[in-house]
Computed example of a mutant assay.
Amino acid sequence: MVATPISASSRYIPPGTRQYYYVPTIASLASPTRIELDAGTDLTGEVADVSGFQTTSESTDTPDLGSRFVSKIPGRISADDSSITMYASEDSQDVRQLLPRDTAGYIVQFPEGDIAGRTMDVFPVKVASAPKMTDVEDPAKIEVQFTITAEPEENVTVPA
């Protein structure tokens, strides 16, 4: 008997597909409502780069006297510090107004777009800082640095 192959993926690149929202209030991370998402701000058009916004799990050794082999189990889950780099505006009317230091809320990542029935990831965040980048040759940018304040919900169905 031959194993059933995994379904073929519809491959894509993130530009033009992936979206990021800042949402100030979400009652249930496992099921944000369309009203809550629509009350947020779509950051996508000003995003130059994104770092983080993913979870990782440690491995924990589970040795026993019955074997020399040391098995492992999944351990604690964490999310690295994350950031979204956005373009600065010469009139200072940009992400600095929306996300100053210590702002708490949620970054919602739509890997395949804000389309009902697809999935999204919801990260509870607090802005750690928003430094202006100092490169003199590239367009002016601001790197909004976030701490992830609680366990995110991943692969949540996007509501209609």
Score class of each variant (00 low, 15 high):
Ala48Thr: 05
Asp49Tyr: 11
Asp49Thr: 07
Asp49Val: 04
Val50Met: 08
Val50Tyr: 03
Val50Asp: 08
Phe53Trp: 05
Gln54Leu: 12
Thr56Glu: 13
Thr56Leu: 10
Ser57Tyr: 13
Ser59Cys: 06
Asp64Arg: 10
Asp64Glu: 10
Leu65Ala: 11
Leu65Gln: 08
Gly66Glu: 04
Gly66Tyr: 12
Ser67Lys: 01
Arg68Thr: 13
Arg68Gln: 15
Phe69Cys: 11
Lys72Asp: 05
Pro74Phe: 01
Pro74Trp: 01
Arg76Leu: 12
Arg76Pro: 04
Ile77Ser: 12
Ser78Cys: 07
Ser78His: 10
Ala79Val: 15
Ala79Leu: 02
Ala79Ser: 15
Ala79Gly: 04
Asp80Tyr: 12
Asp81Asn: 15
Ser82Glu: 02
Ser83Trp: 02
Ser83Lys: 01
Thr85Cys: 08
Thr85Lys: 11
Tyr87Thr: 00
Tyr87His: 00
Ala88His: 03
Ser89Pro: 00
Ser89Leu: 03
Glu90Trp: 09
Asp91Trp: 07
Asp91Leu: 07
Ser92Gly: 04
Ser92Ile: 07
Ser92Gln: 12
Asp94Met: 07
Arg96Leu: 06
Arg96His: 09
Gln97Arg: 11
Gln97Lys: 14
Leu98Phe: 09
Thr103Phe: 03
Thr103Gly: 02
Thr103Trp: 04
Gly105His: 10
Gly105Gln: 09
Tyr106Cys: 00
Ile107Lys: 01
Val108Cys: 11
Gln109Thr: 10
Gln109Met: 13
Gln109Glu: 14
Phe110Arg: 06
Pro111Thr: 06
Pro111Glu: 03
Pro111Leu: 05
Glu112Thr: 15
Gly113Phe: 09
Gly113Asn: 13
Ile115Val: 15
Ile115Trp: 06
Ile115Leu: 12
Ile115Thr: 15
Gly117Pro: 04
Arg118Gln: 13
Arg118Ile: 03
Thr119Phe: 03
Thr119Asp: 04
Thr119Ile: 11
Met120Cys: 06
Asp121Trp: 01
